[in-house]
Write a protein that binds this DNA or RNA. Sequence first.
DNA 1: ACTTCCTGCC
Length: 617
Amino acid sequence: MSTQKVLRTASTVLPSIPPSLSNREIAQQIAQTLINSGPKHLQTSPSLLSYLNSDITHLVLSDPHVSSQSCSSFFNFLRRNESFTSQKLDLRAHVTLMCRLYGARKFAQMKNMLNCIVTDDNLRCPVPIIISLIEDGYSEPTFAEKLCDMLMRVYADNKMFKEAIEVFDYMAKNGFEIEERSCFVLLLALKRSDRAEECLGFFRRMIESDVLITVYSMTSVIDGLCRRGEMERGRGLMVEMVDRGIKPSVITYNTFVNAYVERKDFVGLNEILSLMEKDQVTYNAATYTILIECYGSSGNIEEAEKLFEEMHKKGIKADVHVYTSIISWNCRLGNMKRAFELFDELTERGFAPNVHTYGALINGVCKAGQMEAAEMLVNEMQSKGHDLNRVIFNTLMDGYCKTGMVDEALRLQGFMEKKGFESDEFTYNVIASGMCKSNRHEDAKRLLYIMVDKGVTPNTVNLTTLIGIHCKEGNVGEAKRVFTEMEKKGQKPTTVTYNVLVDGYIKKGKMKEAHRLKEEMEDKGIMPDTYTYTSLVHGESVYGNVDDALKMFEEMSSKGLVRTVATFTAMISGLSKVGRSDEAFKLYGEMMKSGLTPDDRVYSSLVSSLHQVGPSL
DNA sequence: ACTTCCTGCC
């Protein structure tokens, strides 16, 4: 039998309440029922409920004889049966119950209720109205203060920043004591929503209102600024706060260190590191992690390892982050032996490798094409209780694709989706580029269109892949069209995007257009890299314009770009082709001196250059 | 006290 039916049947059996009863009397009867038998019993005396109104609810909930637990049950009972008590629980009912919960120190329940209020369009309202519903003399004097404090946190959690700040203003205006911890919650929420400006603004309001300021708050605000590249303002704020007696911690400094490293601002980096030294703030494991990242990303693994050693020597306690970092860089640079050595060291020292650690290793073996090793690591990881996540799945798919096993990657994609992970931009890109490598251009294009159908918006990398496909098919017109469209949508091309396009034009013999693109990227501040130049050197060499090729080749060193085997090979073969074998051999020497290992093509170029003009050495 | 740091695609 349904509840509703129970109620209807019951009402015909039980004696009805005379309408002459006052609200207070009805409330007392309900309270009595609750005390004696709990809310469920109310279902059998529905006549009581038929008189229910806002006042009665309030009277019941504020009756000290009814325990806060019973009040909660009554409240929940009414909420479940709102449809036929025809009584919506109003804001006053909420406030009254929260007052009882506060008395019982049931803060978590209070917070849940506030969360309901702020997310309900009918209940949400300005702070003064909520406060006006608190009954004077009945509630504890600190209730209003605590309620506001929680409300500010709840608004912050729901990213309702305007409202959260309104609560703060209300508290400040009414002389409420404001907890720094609650303000901190709001600061963090603002920072994490990329609202550095409002974060700083609120921090200033905290200072004005004499809220206690801690290094935690300061560091969060600084981090917000640093994430937007505003390290100067962050430094200014730090200086200002030092004057107020706040001492920056190693974490404050790490925030700056990280920002400078991310932006490759080595001047700023050195400044902040000397500042740390001056302030006698010692590095912690995170500082080393960031610095290892700095050296690793510029390919200087030796320096990264030196730092790692320094950390041990100085007796600074390592952690799983710093180990994962050094493992990852060794993996990315192909030093798998060292990576596994570090992995063993990590476990020997009693640290537990996590998903990131396994992810780094799996990535390393996948890049080396060792898929069996990858599968073993996956098993080990799972046996230690770490589930596969999407990143690992994508890494594995990339491994399969790079070893030519596109179908295995597709199988894994199906498995991943069955596990509840939707394919994302990475997944589609990994497989599409894998298909390209196996010359399945049509499949690759189709997959990228499926991606759009599934509601995944292509990012710059996906579009770069698509541009690459068109170029590979010799359709630079279509490639350029995608490129233009991408820019129109505000998606910023990267150096790679330009490289793909430059290469496409070169393959079509359109050297002028290729150079124009190079200039275009320079104008936009997207810097041509080793690949851009190598393509141009190669193109000019192939079409016999050696002097233009040489010009590009020279420009590379003036810009400090590393020349690879491919660069030298292109240049040497260009020179050889037109019979300038002296210069070709000179470059060959230079290449050997810089520690590069020439491949077969270099030799055949050189040999053919000798055939053309006769031995000159 | 959720202040900093660790895994993937062209």
